[in-house]
Design a protein around this nucleic acid. Structure first.
Lengths: 242, 242
DNA sequence: CGCTGGCTTGATTCTATTCAATTTTCGTGG
DNA sequence: CCACGAAAATTGAATAGAATCAAGCCAGCG
């Protein structure tokens, strides 16, 4: 991986809903958690790293030396089952954190879906600081809560019976991840069909058929394979809830 | 809900794996996160609450005024889908925390599966303290990481193709939740078949058939409907990974 | 302009769901 | 302590839906 110490932007950024405060700063949107001072401090321990599209960032079982904070690009977090098929845990976008560990080792693998720029935060330094700096740590708590809720939503998605319901909910989740302001904006799908399949637990064939049906029913409209627009939001919601 | 301010035990207890340190204090087991001072302080803001078996602790959408820390008993966290069926998010055991919120409201519902005793920690007081006390907060970070990993394992379980694989993995997860020391100990299932079904996303009928088959293949042995013993751990692992 | 990998589509197979009937368990009150 | 009723669990038969496998198609890229 390419590394440079120079801090390109103003330092790390983390985005999440506050678990406790309601509607702050504005309802319906995650807010920026770090203040300038915190970003500046984090910048002193962070390196900016870059990865090419398709490059592996870390693999299951490796010592977890870094926590990553995305500047630009998208990554997929995945697990490989016995049979070799990838089960996708989640997708991460700019201002997300990834690199979750257990007992000092990564418990999943990460791969860049697009060219990626990120801050690499050494876990050792981060840990030392966090035990002392409550305010900084507090923001990590908020982010963790956010990711936990997201993981639970994913589990909820996986419990949908019909392929169409899974796909409908998947599109809703993706839209929110990209926190599109206007209702009319297009959703960009940085992952291929196999990755979608791995995330919602369907065969690639079923994903293909499902998306075809959604388009046929005029619920969504594809500009090309990676750009969708939600045409009938109402019906999509109904489908998502079976 | 019944409330009393008296602190029965020595104060709240939280258990988890440390995300960063490896094998501390002993490999393979979660450790106690709070020190005596922290427990004492938490005890000053906590009330001890009790719930009867089957009682609802909180419901989706209510203001999240408390975070709960289980002293004894088991709770299920669940979501209700459109059709009225319950999707179970997770089960919580003693020394767990529950009551996750988003923007000040509970995002799921909680019900006692057994008679329950817990500490109710007012979120407002907790939040105030956490912003100042880094060490205390650090332990909550560790616990959140723990739950996040657990949620991701759940999603992984849901992605298993065959009913038997789901059940095998479910039993493994339950065993770990109860962190049985010896290999020979029995697993206690505090939930009914419908709850198992809701957690692993199968029909109750399929759960029944699956457990029957596991028993028939001598992989597990039921003493009664709620007590299982893993007889052939090796085969169970194979089945769990399909 | 052709090649390669991703994507789509079709036919078949297989597994869990559904729904209903039956048995077992559990809680209650006699 | 036992008997009863209600709820939970099991079982069976039919059905529906996605997986699988294989073949063809399209898109992006050299």
């Amino acid at each position: 991986m390419a590394t440079k110490s120079l801090n390109l932007a103003g330092g790390p950024l983390i985005r999440a809903f506050d678990p406790w405060l309601s509607g702050y700063p504005s309802p319906g949107k995650p807010h920026q958690l770090l203040n300038d001072e915190e970003r500046a401090w984090l910048a002193t321990i962070a390196s900016v790293v870059r990865f090419k599209k398709g490059e592996t960032i870390y693999s299951f079982g490796e010592p977890a030396t870094f926590l990553f904070n995305i500047i630009s690009g998208v990554v997929k977090i995945y697990l490989v089952a016995r049979k070799g098929e990838e089960s996708i845990v989640c997708f991460h976008y700019p201002e997300d954190l990834f690199g979750l560990a257990e007992k000092g080792k990564y418990i999943n693998s990460a791969k860049a879906l697009t060219p990626l720029t990120a801050y690499a935060l050494p876990t050792a330094a981060l840990r030392t600081r966090m035990v002392k700096d409550a305010a900084l740590e507090f923001h990590f708590v908020a982010k963790l809560c956010h990711d936990l809720r997201e993981a639970q939503r994913h589990a909820f998605l996986l419990a949908r019976r019909h392929a169409i319901a899974k796909l409908a909910m998947f599109l809703q989740l993706q839209e929110r991840l990209q926190s599109v302001a206007g209702q009319q904006a297009e959703i960009y799908l940085p992952m291929d069909r196999a990755d979608i399949a791995g995330y919602i637990d369907l065969s690639p064939a079923a994903v293909s058929r499902g998306l075809r049906d959604l388009a046929a029913r005029r619920v969504v409209k594809f500009r090309d394979r990676r750009h969708v627009k939600i045409v009938n939001r109402k019906v999509l919601e109904e489908l998502a809830s079976e």
